[in-house]
Amino acid sequence: MDANTKLCQGKDIFERMNYLYQASYLMALKNRVAASYYGNVMVGCAKKSVLRIESDIKRTICKCCQSPLIPGETARVRLVSKPVKGIKWTCLTCLSIKRYPTKKGYKLWTEQPNSVVQIFNYTSKSVDDKSVTETQKRNLDKRNSVNIEKN
């Protein structure tokens, strides 16, 4: 293959994870067992090859059963105030609960501008114009892999 693809470490696995994520969302409403299985394989791939998933993507799959969380369909989303103010996500397949506290002015480290040192763009210019969303998602994944954290 050309030199461009060799530079990005774990590109094929990122592509595979991306495909599994999309497949899982495709099957979410038709067959929850299949959706959960694809999510599980995706997380397993990331674990085996030690690649990080972008936190925005990680929050859209259930931590417990790895099925995709779609508000109103497979997940219940509520605002809670009791322990700390935040958002509570309940997965409807396994009834697990995840709470995300909302703090004013707080940003995740990956959202802060000083976490990104350099962005490499690996998408080949000539080919990838079939599906815009796909490349966008992949860019997200990839940028995360490349972020070199200060300190």
Partner: peptide, 22 residues
């Protein structure tokens, strides 16, 4: 149907929820 803690499901738990076999 029991509430899961926020951990990865074991294979046995998965079987109980019916998530292993399509």
């Amino acid at each position: 149907k029991k509430q899961c803690k926020g951990k990865l499901l074991t294979n046995r738990k998965r079987m109980q929820l019916g998530l292993r076999k399509i």
